[in-house]
Design a protein around this nucleic acid. Structure first.
Lengths: 133, 133, 133, 133
DNA sequence: GTGGTCTAGACCACA
DNA sequence: GTGGTCTAGACCACT
């Protein structure tokens, strides 16, 4: 899996890292149970601080995406599917995006078409850099 | 229009303010052409600094949501609808949310149902505080 | 002559007014010796404050474009041509524009071609609203 | 690079700063990839507030001239040349300058000669303080 | 009245 | 170390 970080972005690096790994899981590129590189390894590979990688891993753990095992490092959780309560964050994010779209005159059909297309395209989507807040 | 800010959030106040105003426009609570409070007034009302409000207003201006008139303050742009190219930001935000949902095992039907419900509910949605990045 | 003012612009109204009148003179729409509307008349026509019009007229007078006569109001100066020392401001403005162009990789030929085209097109140019500072 | 600011100018300090840095890039004094002083350092050096420098840097970032990296501060963008669409602002600025020149009786040959000289002299030009609006 | 600019500090997030 | 955010005031330009 290739990780692309933008050092000049407003989004913190640890959050870009977290986002890319979530994208990797969502797209199936990272399978449940699959191991992630060690903090040290990943930090060296992409040339960033270990603390930054560690922070991303901890967020992913707290969000229920990965497990961290002192012996075997981090891996994608096996029981990810049973962990489905993405409603709060999803609804917040969607309501903001929907409001922006509605404010600029987009109708529901167009909005839903983009939603569907985006969901279908996850597998091939690149997580391009963008200011999300 | 009632604005609720969370002073201890990671999201900057000016960005929360920006988000809430966008929600207000999207929901129709703020109509095109409608005047916004002056930066001074709003700053006093919600107990924050003038410059923070000013920053939010300037972002909204640059994003094309409002106009700022030296004489009468800020108002929602009349020609908001003609400005419809929210696709880039929308697609980025959606791809992240869709990936998160997919990673947690949500199927397309459920995802789209939530998308539709969110779009319909904009009018009554409260923009609850949440870390979006 | 039609004056178009943008109340939501960063450029002060009196300066927009000054710019449009200069454009009118440059394009030949306003001829040397031609009278301008009275301050009161113009203020009413375009719905702005008399002080604003007066300020624009005073700048134009100080810059040597117009004469203001208590009896006959303002008119374009007859001897405009003899007044040719536009070098300082011209050079400042040009050096900034040239630097911006050069910084973004434009070569001299392209730059000069745009300069020539702009000069030729003055007669038909609309002074579109733009942040000049 | 020497920065000269005029504290009693109508042009805001942050804009003077932005202009001077653009001149520096255009003249080659600041090369692509070259680092700029930190906001703190520059603020101290020229005796102004950090936020004023920050504002200038942010404008330059939004205009595509520089990148701001959380780790190493600001630097001139590497891919500046690929960003070449300065035509809109250039055309507006030129049309105003050309109109002023034409109004004062300057002919095309003289105007173009000054344009060419200015472009050639960028390297040695000083950006003198002047009211551009 | 309006917004724009600026100061001189402070605290925080990031790396 | 870096930039980002925010405050509580001040003064100015514009209308």
């Amino acid at each position: 899996m290739i990780l692309q970080l933008n050092m000049s972005s407003d989004t913190p690096i640890y959050m870009q890292l977290r986002n890319q790994i979530v994208m990797g899981i969502g797209s199936g590129e990272l399978k449940t149970g699959e191991g992630l590189p060690s903090v040290r390894q990943l930090a060296v590979d992409i040339g960033i601080n270990m603390m930054t990688v560690s922070k991303a891993y901890n967020i992913l753990k707290n969000e229920g995406y990965i497990e961290i095992d002192r012996r075997h490092g981090a891996k994608v959780r096996e029981d990810l599917d049973s962990n489905r309560k993405p409603t709060e964050k999803l609804e917040y994010g969607l309501s903001l995006l929907a409001a922006e779209s509605k404010a600029k005159g987009m109708d529901k059909e167009t909005f839903l078409k983009i939603c569907e297309k985006t969901f279908n395209d996850i597998n091939t989507q690149k997580l391009k850099e963008h200011r999300a807040c």
